[in-house]
């Protein structure tokens, strides 16, 4: 087996609140991403998927577990030592309007990572920036435009160009198209797919849109209240789901003439998590033991792990 590009073991993040209370945003996450792999992270608001994205890139420090990138443990190394690795991993945010500094032109935004990482300067820098903008389909006239002069799709293209500037091997995309209209979303998705194929990128693609994840990822992890509850090949998890939550999620997607309110209630507040399996108050199949015992993630079939008492499986080997 090749060295994974990204490896997370028992990763967790707990925030301290006032009066000694704590809230756990992410817990016990094990992930391995090989170079060029595409992992989708799905779940509803507050499930911790965005926090997990930031943990993976060490944009926020983990409070439990380890992350290593290309064989280097980055869980606790100083920011200065991390900087050369930052070149190889990049993030794309949900809202391109907020992800661009309103006072920097598109050209300056794309140039910034190149300047920081000392990759180009002077005429070479200008040529690189123009080439990157061209790669995302923006002509040279956009170089001097400010974010407020660009449409949502154009802004997201600038963000992508900026993320590509340092030729990363890993891209974390946090809901990259959810602020965009569907016709523009399709343009960006098409473009991202081409990009991954040509550059051999690995990505972690976070989305609440199951269809988009099924389209762009080979593997999917479903999160609920900070934990992965089901993980496996996208076609299996989203085509033949085993966890009751994944099933509810899929059934809730509106379809022609059909509304299925498949799970009652709403995602719980992470500050007051339910006992046992976090999903049990909303689960149509819940049994008494679901109220008391939290199920571990177990292998149900090859490459398909599920955390549910009602799905038989074997204990997963440590990564």
């Amino acid at each position: 087996m090749t060295t994974p590009l990204l490896l997370a073991q028992g990763l967790g993040k707990t925030y301290a609140l006032k009066q000694g209370r704590t809230v756990t945003a992410v817990a016990d996450v094990d992930l391995a991403l090989t170079p060029g792999a595409a992992l989708g992270l799905v779940g509803e608001s507050g499930c911790g998927k965005s926090t997990l994205a930031r943990l993976l890139l060490r944009l926020t420090p983990a409070t439990a577990g380890r992350i290593s990138f290309a064989g280097t443990d980055i869980t606790r190394i100083p920011e200065r030592a991390l900087r050369p690795l930052r070149r190889r991993m990049q993030i794309i945010h949900q809202n391109p309007s907020a992800a661009l500094d309103p006072r920097l032109t598109a050209g300056a935004a794309v140039a910034e990572p190149l300047i920081i990482q000392n990759l180009a300067r002077g005429a070479a820098l200008r040529a690189r920036v123009a080439a990157l903008l061209a790669e995302v389909g923006l002509t040279a006239e956009f170089l001097n435009r400010f974010p407020h002069e660009l449409s949502g799709g154009q802004k997201q293209r600038v963000c992508i160009a900026r993320a590509l500037a340092t030729e990363p091997e890993l891209l974390v995309l946090d809901e990259p198209t959810s602020a965009l209209d569907v016709s523009v979303q399709a343009q960006i998705l098409e473009f991202l797919e081409t990009l991954r194929a040509t550059r051999g990128l690995a990505w972690v693609f976070i989305s609440h849109n199951l269809a988009v994840v099924r389209l762009l990822c080979e593997e999917v992890a479903v999160m609920y209240l900070g934990r992965i509850v089901e993980q496996g090949p996208a076609n299996t998890v989203l085509g033949a789901p085993l966890h009751p939550y994944t099933r509810a999620l899929l059934a809730s997607v509106p379809r022609l003439g059909q509304i299925a309110a498949a799970a009652p209630g709403e995602p719980p507040n992470p500050a007051v998590p339910p006992s046992g399996c976090a999903f049990h108050p909303r689960c149509p199949l819940a049994e008494p033991r679901c109220r008391t015992d939290a199920p571990a993630l177990r292998i149900a079939a090859t490459g398909h792990a599920v955390a549910c008492h009602l799905v038989p499986g074997t204990k997963r080997a440590a990564l």
């Binding site: 399709a186 988009v212 099924r214 996208a234 997607v253």
Partner: peptide
């Protein structure tokens, strides 16, 4: 342009 969850073979095309 709409991705179809039930038909992943459909590749969305932008306008």
């Amino acid at each position: 342009a709409l991705p179809d969850l039930d038909n992943p073979a459909h590749r969305p095309r932008g306008i």
